[in-house]
């Protein structure tokens, strides 16, 4: 089981994601450089980390989406590979069209870094199988543009297809004004997941307020991959 963490210029959570995959999950993990289009099939899960790719001076994720590695990521995802995009990674997945919708500036017009409470909406994904729907996870956010937007039709589709994976617990807990309190969504096939909160920041009890709810996300991925491996007779 091997993880790959993509580094774009301006990624700043790439080492944090590497730390969780390599040190906390104890899985072989590579850093994947943005400049090269490459065969990613050796990886079982790709992480698109948070940060400010290309400075995010235009629109978050808008330039990263054109970097050579994204062609490979799209091929990888279309072949069924697991991709998780966190914060800026989520924004890049939206810009790349791997997930529907778009991101706006927070309603407050301010960057916000704080713990948020999330409700698991769909526990039947490779990223949440260790949770139960209705579980409450406490995971921090840190972003200025996390206000998820999608038109009504699109929202109806997300709901109908159970693509909303995690929601902020309430209007009060919603840190950015996202439509329908959406914090994270997956594609119809369930193999691509994007979320604004940072599970890698709360996967060890020593950090911050002690929440380790983020670990559940990564542990779900490992569990999913282990089962898939067994089924394939690996």
């Amino acid at each position: 089981m091997k993880f790959g963490v993509v580094t774009f210029p301006g990624s700043n959570c790439d080492q944090d994601c590497y730390h969780v995959a390599a040190e906390v999950l104890n899985k072989p993990t590579d850093m994947v450089w943005h400049k090269d289009k490459q065969d990613l099939s050796e990886y079982d899960c790709l992480i698109l980390p948070g940060g400010f790719s290309y400075g995010d001076y235009l629109r978050t994720g808008a330039i990263a989406r054109f970097s050579p590695i994204m062609e490979s990521v799209i091929e990888y995802a279309e072949a069924g590979g697991l991709v998780i995009g966190i914060c800026n990674g989520f924004q890049i997945l939206l810009e790349a069209g791997l997930l529907p919708g778009a991101m706006k500036v927070n309603d407050s017009l301010k960057f916000v870094c704080d713990y948020t409470k999330l409700e698991v909406v769909n526990d039947d994904t490779p990223f949440t199988n260790r949770c139960n729907s209705g579980d409450i996870l406490e995971i921090p956010v840190a972003h200025g543009e996390g206000n998820y937007h999608i038109d009504e039709e699109g929202l109806a589709e997300l709901i109908a297809n159970q693509q909303i994976v995690v929601r902020y617990l309430s209007e009060e807990e919603n840190p950015n004004g996202s439509v329908d309190n959406i914090a994270g969504i997956c594609n119809q096939e369930r193999n691509v997941f994007g979320l604004m909160p940072h599970p890698e920041r709360c996967s060890e009890s020593i950090l911050g307020n002690g929440s380790t709810d983020g670990y559940q996300i990564f542990a779900s991925i490992v569990e999913y991959l282990s089962k898939r491996g067994e089924e394939c007779g690996e």
């Binding site: 080492q15 944090d16 916000v112 870094c113 704080d114 020593i206 950090l207 911050g208």
Partner: peptide
Amino acid sequence: VYQQYDHMVQTNTVVL
């Protein structure tokens, strides 16, 4: 003030 600062990136912040 400090909610506008990312005070957790690099995952080393033990006391907030």
